[in-house]
Design a protein around this nucleic acid. Structure first.
Lengths: 233, 233
DNA sequence: CGATACATTGAAACAACTCAAATAAAGTGG
DNA sequence: CCACTTTATTTGAGTTGTTTCAATGTATCG
């Protein structure tokens, strides 16, 4: 029995395109690996040597300017795919935000396997098209939204993506939601293209307006989802 | 003889993955169409009904906030692919910037054809991965660069992508380059997440610094490529 | 419990924006 | 082809939102 049978993302990751026998072959060229917060799996500018599936945890994709400014260009969750298949250099680093488990492959092995399994390439294509859509939507935020709209948009997106792990929904209060952010204030700033101080000020403003509550640094309780969505612009 | 044999992008577009017979089949479900500047091929939010290859011209991909702010999220050139295969709604409009010619397919027809031709899907995947890389690099510009860095980066990127059409290189002066921009000042502002006035001021500053010359509205002569690249940050 | 990292708050500076006007280019019709 | 209108771009002056720099407050961890 391949270890994939027990995998929690078996039916959501690109692996879902494979039957039992194919899955075993893929399993043979991959291995699981844990990554601690702050640890990197891939570095910006290195030529692409490995790809991976996220089994558990949250990781950031980030680029830096020469003088050290950082921009987080993507966030990946369980079942998401990481890395740059088919050559090239990776344009961004991949770093764990929470304790993570990933299923890694050498890029060369993965490329060869993918080229022999069109259904896998198809799943990867659908995933990549979806990621491109999401990334382009984020460009509107970076280029055209105010700090207030940026943070509100961020919290709305977070509440949508952090299902299960890190996010609890109280069905009695459908307008409310409780989340545990996998980001520090600085990391939120790096996602939104702001400074840490501006992010902090926007948090306290939302709290003072009664839109959210902040029980601790990493926790956010959305008290009024409609108001938050309205602020997102 | 299928009309694809004469196509100028035959060997650069995703069609390059197909042999003569397959190409004829693809040709049978497509048709060419011209689009005038300002005319749209796809509208934001509509469900994806068609996809296309760019044969000639330059088109923008753009999203808008409810209150009318615009962000250009991508620019496509000859041989590039347009549209959202495999369902979903298109998150951005597609509008011609110059007189354009495209080879359009109904999305349903294209989807079916693609699923039967893994080599085509592979080419599309490579293209999409490349586009995602480029888009993520642009996020660093939107989130973290100053107006001066943004315009310099824009001109550098333009000089790289406008090969042949719209861009001439004088080999005697390798540090110089002459380009005809397919963008108005407002459109440049919408690419960079700035206002038209800020873009204009940065243009005149670069001109006063002797880095560029501006013979007419749409023309830019890069006088010192190294200096421009240095300003791009 | 003290040390260290992280987050918030305040005050001042600055980059980009807004609004308004001037200028230049591109169409249009006589 | 020229005068006129319209549109696009540039320039100027003042305002605003975000950043910067500095200080204070608050969790977290050995």
């Amino acid at each position: 029995m391949s270890s994939c049978d027990l995998c929690v993302v078996r039916n959501r990751a690109i692996c879902a395109s494979l039957d039992a026998k194919e899955l075993e072959a893929l399993n043979a060229i991959g291995r699981t690996r844990t990554i601690s917060p702050g640890e990197s799996l891939i570095w910006e500018g290195e030529d692409s040597v490995l790809v991976a599936n996220v089994i558990d945890g949250v990781l950031k994709l980030s680029t830096n300017t020469e003088d050290g400014r950082e921009q987080i260009v993507g966030v990946v969750y369980p079942s998401d795919f990481i890395g740059r298949p088919f050559g090239g250099t990776s344009g961004h680093g991949v770093t764990a935000l929470t304790e993570s488990r990933v299923c890694v492959f050498s890029r060369r092995d993965f490329d060869a396997f993918a080229r022999e399994h069109p259904s896998l390439e198809h799943k990867l294509l659908e995933r990549t098209l979806g990621e491109l859509d999401r990334t382009r939507r984020w460009m509107l935020l970076l280029g055209r939204k105010s700090a207030a709209e940026k943070l509100a948009s961020f919290l709305v997106e977070m509440s949508e993506r952090l299902d299960g792990a890190g996010c609890s929904v109280d069905f009695d209060k459908p307008n409310q939601r409780r989340l545990v952010l996998p980001f520090s204030r600085q990391q939120i700033a790096d996602v939104l293209g702001l400074t840490i101080e501006t992010v902090s000020r926007q948090f306290t403003r939302l709290k003072n307006d009664g839109v959210i509550d902040l029980p601790s640094r990493r926790e956010v309780v959305i008290l009024n989802m409609d108001a938050l969505a309205a602020e997102a612009g």
